[in-house]
Amino acid sequence: MANKFAVKQLSIFLENRRGRLLEVTKTLMDARINIRALSMAESAEFGILRLVVNNPEKARTALSSGGFTIREQDVFAVEVDDEPGGFYGVVKILAESDINIDYTYAFVGESKKAVLIFKVPEELLPKAVSAIEQGGIRLVEPIFFYS
C-alpha cells in the first residue's frame, strides 16, 4: 500500500551523448509536463536524470513512447526553514533511525522555505516518514507537486 507521503519520481537512463538531455526535455515539453524538481547523477559513460513532475503517469507514457528507459520510484519530500541547519535536522533524524539515504536533492520553496527530496530503500520509506513526522518536521504531500 502506498504511503500517503510517497511522491512518484521518474528516473531516466541516459547515455552521456550530446543532445540526449535536449530530447528528454523536449519530449516533456511536447507532452506539456511541468518539471517540479530534478537532479542528475552521472558517471563517465551514462547518467540518471531524476524528475518529480506534475503528472507522473502522463510523463511516463510520453517518455516510454519516446524510447527512454524509465523507472518509477517512491521518494518523500520535507519542508524545512531555508536557513543553516535545516538539512541537518532531517538527516539527523534519519541517521538516528538507522535509515540509509540513497540520495537526496533540494530546491528552494516559497517564503524562506526549502524542500528536500529523499530516496531511501523502498522498504524503509514508511519508517522514514514516521520518524520525520515524530521529529516534528513537515512532510510535503504529493499533491504539492502534482498540481
Binding site: S11, F13, S43, F46, I48, Q73
Partner: peptide
Amino acid sequence: VDENIFADGLGALE
C-alpha cells in the same frame, strides 16, 4: 539498458 535491468543508482549500474 531496458526497464528490466535499469536500477536507479549509478552504483548499481556500475
